[in-house]
């Protein structure tokens, strides 16, 4: 089981969290985006083997959305930030 260090609550087990997927995906500008860009945004993912930047919701804790660096080969967890800070 993963242990995720929440910046507010400390190190907590994976079962307290809900996985939110790839955090690098950005919604295209609706005024200018092509159909291809929309399809890519909705469906395509890099799905990397190695470092992955991803969203987790601390659902059974402080309820904040976090951006977590995790390696998809070793499951090692690196930096954890508030999604609010990561977005700006």
């Amino acid at each position: 089981m993963l242990l995720i260090p929440c910046p507010h609550c400390g190190v907590r087990p994976e079962t307290e969290f809900v996985y939110g997927g790839d955090a690098t995906v950005r919604r295209p500008d609706p005024k200018t985006a092509s159909l291809d860009a929309w399809a890519a945004y909705i469906y395509e993912r890099d799905n990397p083997k190695g470092p992955h930047t991803e969203l987790w919701l601390h659902a059974s804790g402080c309820h904040s959305w976090l951006v977590v660096e995790r390696d998809t080969v070793t499951h090692a967890i690196g930096q954890v930030r508030q999604a609010r800070d990561a977005a700006s």
Binding site: T15, V18, T72
Partner: peptide, 13 residues
Amino acid sequence: DAYTSYTQRGALH
């Protein structure tokens, strides 16, 4: 398991 992974193992829960 909820997260993406290339490791052929999952969590006990």
